[in-house]
Design a protein around this nucleic acid. Structure first.
Lengths: 340, 340
DNA sequence: TTGTATGCGTTATCAT
DNA sequence: ATGATAACGCATACAA
């Protein structure tokens, strides 16, 4: 409401002096400074971030996209941890978070939305179709807008990504099952578009080969990170290949659906069939039985992404590189030795 | 990057004509309009929201505060549903969401932060200490900034709140237990500062009296929505009053902790002790046993809050009123008839 | 140490 | 139908 003009008038000085005072510049007299500060206090002054942003071309705002297409749904398995970490990191650095939600701009792209809002950088936390590296993604990647994606392999001068070591994680899951004596291991994967899905699939296949077990294409189904599809895939797999004794399912949400389906079909987990998930979502520990899974460091993914983004923003000479964080096998009660 | 000035120059017209064209004003010639539109397209023009906001004094941005003090933690039991609903509603209306995270402004208040950022309105989704109606809250309430709080009884000309019918919800929980034959019903409440906690406590007490059971102060403990405190309260209650056969716990998160603690103490749920929670969080259905609880309409709370906020913003003559949404008893497996 | 003047990109008012 | 110009609130280069 009250501007530096008002203060300047009341203090009998110029607006530049007020501006300098308010921004803690050194070159302002002691008594004038005090007078101005006092008046600002009295008049209940606060700066107008919009005006400042316009002149400085810096908004202290980090943009964020979630969901699948542009912005539908919050179905990311660890949305909460990531946003919590992001908030912590960018908040400490003096930034606020702008979540792009406006749906009245159908002709826009990620890039134009970021430019319109003049965000200083952007974080991509997408799922499903949103992860496809389409034209929009390529545009963003080479736009020069500081950008860090989670699980999407964007690379550019000001653009990189953070992900888990999905390959090793998947490999650990399979090793665990093999060590328990399982040989007929079904696989319920994600989709055919995401690097995440691809890496987990490769981890599964390579490890089976490495362990001398061999890959059976008929044991592989895609669940597209959907509970329904995972359930359907389970039924098909068990019907066509009743010899299967274990499953590796590439997301906990799907793994929960698989477990429910298996139990509906009359199988006991883990007595009849072992099950390993991926993610370590909150529910995993409370499932019956508690789910063995590959834990992703969700909070660290978020905080790494945020830190890298800030570095891209604040250090013009910094060249970002993709960051891969380790996973960890968490053994709970959904896996057991194979019996015959 | 490219401004209306650039377009004006290239098109050989004035910036006002360009502005009018871009904003679909009727009073511009057909051929000039087309020319300008074409050039804007070619030059890859997009408007600068910051500049527009400055002159229009309207940002198309909804501010949002979460967590406990100012912004620590995402511990709200239905953060995800609320934000998802909010996004849907405000997004369709052409707004983006600004999450206040900046921690470098220790002398600011909710009000000054909103004013600095010139948000058009603000949503308060706080927990714990954050729900206390302190000076900052009073300031915000009477600031004239359009504001809707969730579960905090703010009331002002441009300010209101949305909540569940906590009293009736609590009452239904107790009725359910009484109908199952329980008479010694322990209560683990929230805190002494929130209306939410107060209403649930009253629902518990009034219903016990109404049913002729009577209130026993020694059966009442506060858990402050903390798993640890709820667990401790459970131990104390069971130690001091081993005759208790049921608990009403005012949040599912605490109820889960209570269940764990009860089981650790050797009690079976529901055979020995029945348990009713509140909220119906995602985990409730997968607990062992699945938790009987009072379901809050989380998504509706968020969408109602957002709709009311938009109405306050867009209809100057609108006088907001608090909105109370119904709860629903969801009977699962943590409650059973009392046996003796 | 302080003031003057300019510009940031837009919208809006008033002419023409 | 179009243009000139003044805001919006602030930061900053340059003068004094």
């Amino acid at each position: 409401m009250t501007s530096i003009q008002d203060i300047a008038k009341k203090a009998g000085v110029s607006i530049s002096t007020v501006s300098r005072t308010l921004n803690n510049y050194p070159d302002v007299g002691q008594k004038t400074r005090e007078k101005i500060l006092k008046i600002a206090e009295e008049m209940n002054y606060f700066p107008n971030a919009v005006a400042r942003s316009l002149v400085q071309k810096k908004t202290f705002t980090i943009g964020m996209f979630f969901g699948n297409n542009m912005n539908l749904g919050f179905d990311h398995p660890f949305f909460l941890d990531v946003i919590s970490a992001v908030r912590e990191v960018v908040g400490n650095a003096g930034y606020d978070l702008l979540v792009f939600t406006n749906k009245n701009k159908n002709r826009s792209t990620y890039t134009t939305l970021c430019r319109e809002r003049s965000v200083d950088g952007v974080l991509m936390l997408l799922t499903g179709e949103g992860k496809k590296k389409n034209e929009q993604m390529l545009e963003l990647q080479s736009s020069g807008i500081p950008c860090v994606a989670i699980d999407i392999p964007l690379v550019g001068d000001k653009c990189t990504y953070v992900e888990s070591d999905n390959y090793t994680g998947a490999s650990d899951a399979v090793k665990h099952l093999v060590e328990l004596g399982h040989r007929k291991i079904g696989f319920i994967g994600g989709d055919e578009i995401s690097k995440t899905s691809y890496d987990r699939m490769r981890g599964y296949q390579d490890t089976l080969i490495e362990k001398g077990v061999g890959v059976r294409p008929e044991y592989i189904q895609l669940g597209h990170f959907s509970s329904e599809k995972a359930s359907k895939a389970t039924r098909k797999l068990m019907k066509d290949n009743p010899e299967i004794t274990a499953f590796f399912v590439v997301s906990d949400e799907m793994a929960c659906a698989v477990m429910d389906t298996l139990q509906e079909l009359g199988f006991r987990v883990p007595e009849d069939i072992s099950l390993v998930g991926f993610d370590d979502i909150k529910e995993a520990v409370h499932y019956s039985p508690p789910l063995t899974t590959i834990k992703q460091m969700k909070y660290e993914i978020g905080s790494e992404a945020a830190k890298i983004l800030l570095q891209i923003i604040n250090d013009k000479s910094f060249h970002p590189e993709p960051k891969t964080l380790p996973c960890e096998l968490v053994v709970r009660k959904s896996t057991a030795h194979k019996v015959d």
